[in-house]
Amino acid sequence: MKYGLLPVLLLCFSSATAEEFNTLRTQQSSVTFVSKQMGVPVAGSFNKFSADIAVNPAKPETGSARISIDLNNMDAGSAEANDELGSRSWFDTRQHPVARFVSSHVTRTGDDRYEALGNMTIKGKTLSVKAPFTLKRVAGTVVIDGVFPIKRLDYGIGTGIWADTSVVADEVKITFHFTVGKPR
């Protein structure tokens, strides 16, 4: 019992030391999305977000991520759309200014390929999502890239007249690119 804790301690120690990358390089990171309007893909971006990511490239399965996105700073592709996004039928940003993703589990799916399972909270609704990603070491940093779809209507994004998916498709593709370094 007494020594049973030792491996756990060692594990904590090793994951919190030299090999852990945990500082987001904001300038080299992005979260963007593509929605479809009348069959036309429209690019958008989340211009302000924070990400607490801790990853050891030797053991990415032990990594964790907590991402917060400021929904008052998004660009959905046009001034008109941006004016509309804060409204109650879209993101209702007065009640729900932030979207969150919190990872619960990371699994390896292939060479440099992983999948983060976690909870996504948007507009007060929390649903579990799977985000596949690749992980590469680039010049003293770890670069994480991935794309996953969400269904906007599952979160009540774009209700009422906007629920018509022949105008704005239900599926929105979210692309993330995070560069994580060591504390400077």
Binding site: Q37, M38, G39, V40, P41, V42, A43, G77, S78
Partner: peptide
Amino acid sequence: AKGFQTVWLGVLP
């Protein structure tokens, strides 16, 4: 230039 591709009849980009 406004960031919207034209997709003819919703089918042909």
